[in-house]
């Protein structure tokens, strides 16, 4: 049997969406102090890659581009079972939109080398574009299968079940290939005790700057991002003044229906 593939999983650390609150005074999103997590679909990407490794051997590398605090996402991915991790971090990368992000990640993947599969999440919960995965494929000029809910490694090709609006397509592509994993497509494994021990022992994370990778500073960062966020309007939802009912089900339902009827919600 051919040796298993080298997979590189791109992950991002994002603020927990549920914890984001609008500051009532400034009317902007409060981002400081908000706990962060691995972008949820990226966990599915990690699990997908690890399942390929469980089945065929090979190795799984994890890559992130971001500030040094993203190390904690890498550590968690390592504890889940990834073999090595790469952090691309550089001040000049700040403010990159999807074009420089896909470019920088592609260059880093190129430097790592020897890859057959690249995994991304379907999209991030903070940028929610889903453009970085296909963007990497565009840069590397390799195949792509987006919105994958299952992959099968076929030695010299990869097969992916792709979830589209009206059904599932099965795509088959040569290697290397970028796969973006559908959110909820599998149950990501929790970090394991042995995994955390390996992380604690250290030496698994490689940190690179743009210069280390050979990324052209004229291609990245906020100044080289085609798009800018000109302004952000906070969506202020009407305060619905919830009437909450609880207690014994029968009485609670009666109270709820009475209230709805009284407000004219039940009449057609």
């Amino acid at each position: 049997m051919a040796p298993g593939p080298r997979s590189i999983v791109c992950i991002k650390q994002v603020p927990k969406a549920q914890e984001l609150q609008v500051d009532p005074v400034t009317n902007t999103l409060k981002r400081v102090g908000v706990p962060s997590e691995i972008n949820p679909p990226d966990r599915n990407a990690l699990e997908m890659a690890l399942q390929v490794k469980d089945q065929f051997g090979g190795e799984v590398f994890v890559l992130t581009m971001g500030p040094p605090v993203f190390t904690s996402a890498l550590e968690e991915a390592l504890a889940m079972g990834c073999d090595r991790a790469f952090l691309l971090t550089d001040r000049i990368l700040g403010g990159s939109d999807t074009v420089p992000t896909a470019h920088s990640l592609s260059e880093t993947i190129h430097k790592i080398g020897g890859y057959q599969l690249i995994f991304c999440g379907e999209e991030t919960t903070d940028a929610s574009t889903g453009h970085v995965g296909p963007g990497i494929a565009g840069h590397l000029d390799c195949a792509q299968i987006t919105y994958c809910s299952e992959v099968q490694f076929l030695g010299n090709r990869v097969r992916g079940k792709r979830s589209v609006e009206d059904g599932f397509e099965t795509w088959e592509c040569p290697l290397p290939c970028v796969i973006t994993a559908n959110f909820l497509s599998n149950r990501p494994r929790p970090p394991s005790l042995s995994g955390k021990i390996r992380v604690k022992r250290g030496g698994l994370i490689t940190t690179w700057s743009c210069a280390d990778v050979g990324i052209d500073p004229g291609k990245v960062g906020i100044r080289n991002s085609p798009t800018i966020v000109a302004k952000v309007d906070t969506v202020v939802l009407p305060d619905r003044k919830a009437k909450i009912f609880r207690g014994e089900p029968k009485a609670a339902v009666t109270a709820l229906l009475d209230a709805m009827a009284a407000d004219g919600v039940l009449s057609r």
């Binding site: 494994r189 929790p190 394991s192 005790l193 042995s194 995994g195 021990i197």
Partner: peptide, 9 residues
């Protein structure tokens, strides 16, 4: 040793 989720140390 100890076992968690099938992982043994």
């Amino acid at each position: 040793g100890v076992a968690t989720n099938g992982d043994v140390v």
